[in-house]
Deep mutational scan, measured.
Amino acid sequence: EPREEEAEKYIKRANGDYDKAQELAKKDGNEEIAEAIKEYKKR
């Protein structure tokens, strides 16, 4: 799923820090991806 791939990219950029990844996504205006990262975190 493209959303998950995007989320993974942010998580990698944030060195595995989900909260930081979420912030990066929000900064880029990717609210949807920020949500996907939140879902990811719950797994």
Rank of each mutant, 00 (worst) to 15 (best):
E35R: 11
G29H: 05
E35N: 10
E35D: 10
E39M: 10
E1K: 13
E32A: 12
Y10V: 01
G29A: 04
I37N: 00
D19Q: 07
R43C: 06
A36Q: 11
I33M: 06
E4I: 13
L24F: 07
A21C: 00
K12E: 09
Y40I: 15
K20F: 11
E23A: 10
E4G: 08
R3Y: 15
A25L: 01
E8V: 13
A14S: 04
A21L: 00
Y10I: 02
I11N: 02
R13W: 13
A7W: 12
E23Y: 09
E5T: 13
K27Q: 14
G29P: 00
A14G: 03
A7I: 15
K42R: 13
E35T: 08
N30F: 14
K42L: 11
P2L: 14
E5Y: 12
A34E: 05
E4N: 15
E8H: 08
E1Y: 14
G16N: 05
A36R: 10
K38S: 08
Q22P: 00
E23M: 11
N15G: 13
I33K: 02
E8G: 05
G16M: 05
K20T: 06
K42Q: 12
E32S: 11
G16T: 02
A36L: 15
A34W: 06
I11P: 01
L24I: 05
E31W: 15
E31T: 11
G29K: 05
E23K: 06
P2D: 14
K12A: 12
I37D: 01
A21V: 01
Y40N: 03
E23S: 07
Y40C: 07
E8I: 15
N15I: 03
K41V: 06
D17C: 04
E8Y: 14
E32W: 12
D17R: 03
D17I: 02
I33A: 13
E6D: 09
E39I: 08
K9F: 11
N30Y: 13
E1L: 13
I33N: 01
E32Q: 11
E23R: 07
K27W: 09
E8P: 02
Y40T: 04
K9V: 10
E1D: 15
E39G: 06
Y10W: 04
G16P: 00
D17S: 05
K27N: 11
K12Q: 11
E5R: 13
N30C: 05
A36V: 13
R13V: 06
E32V: 09
I11W: 03
E4F: 15
G16D: 03
K42S: 11
D28N: 04
I33L: 10
E31A: 11
E32R: 12
A25R: 00
Q22S: 09
N30E: 08
D19Y: 06
E6L: 14
Q22C: 12
Y18L: 10
Y10G: 00
E31L: 14
Q22F: 15
R3N: 13
E1R: 14
Y40V: 07
N30K: 15
K20N: 05
A36T: 08
K12I: 09
K20R: 11
E5G: 10
D17M: 02
A36G: 04
E4H: 13
N30H: 13
A25G: 01
K38M: 13
Y18K: 03
G29V: 02
E39S: 07
K27Y: 10
D17H: 04
K38Q: 10
A7P: 04
Q22M: 15
E4L: 14
K20E: 06
D28V: 03
G29Y: 03
Y18R: 03
E8W: 15
E6A: 11
E4S: 13
P2G: 14
R43A: 08
L24A: 07
E23G: 05
K12W: 11
A7L: 14
R3M: 15
A7K: 03
R13A: 12
A34P: 02
L24Y: 08
K20D: 04
A7T: 07
A7M: 13
R13F: 09
R13T: 06
A14M: 03
N15Y: 08
P2Y: 14
Q22E: 12
A36F: 15
K41R: 10
E32M: 10
E4V: 11
E35H: 08
K38C: 05
K12P: 02
E39A: 11
K9Q: 11
E39F: 07
L24D: 05
K12C: 09
Y18A: 04
N30T: 03
K9A: 14
G29T: 02
N15D: 08
K20P: 00
K26A: 09
E35F: 08
K9Y: 14
K38G: 08
R43N: 09
K20L: 15
R43D: 05
K42T: 09
G29R: 04
L24W: 08
K12R: 12
I37P: 00
E8F: 14
E1C: 14
I11S: 01
K26I: 15
E1W: 14
E5Q: 12
D17Y: 02
K9N: 10
K9L: 09
R43K: 13
R43Y: 09
Y18F: 12
E8T: 08
I37H: 00
E1P: 13
I33E: 03
A25Q: 00
A14I: 00
A14H: 01
I11A: 01
A34C: 04
E6G: 07
E5S: 13
K42D: 08
E31G: 08
K38T: 06
K27I: 12
K27D: 09
E39V: 07
K41S: 08
I11E: 01
R43F: 09
D28R: 02
K42M: 11
E4Y: 14
Y10L: 02
E31P: 14
Q22A: 13
Y18P: 03
R43E: 06
G16E: 03
P2W: 15
K41I: 07
I33D: 02
D19L: 07
K41L: 07
K41A: 13
K12S: 09
K42I: 11
R3H: 13
L24S: 05
D28E: 12
E5C: 15
I33V: 12
I33Y: 03
E32N: 08
A14V: 04
Y10P: 00
E1T: 14
R13H: 06
K41D: 03
Y10C: 02
A36S: 07
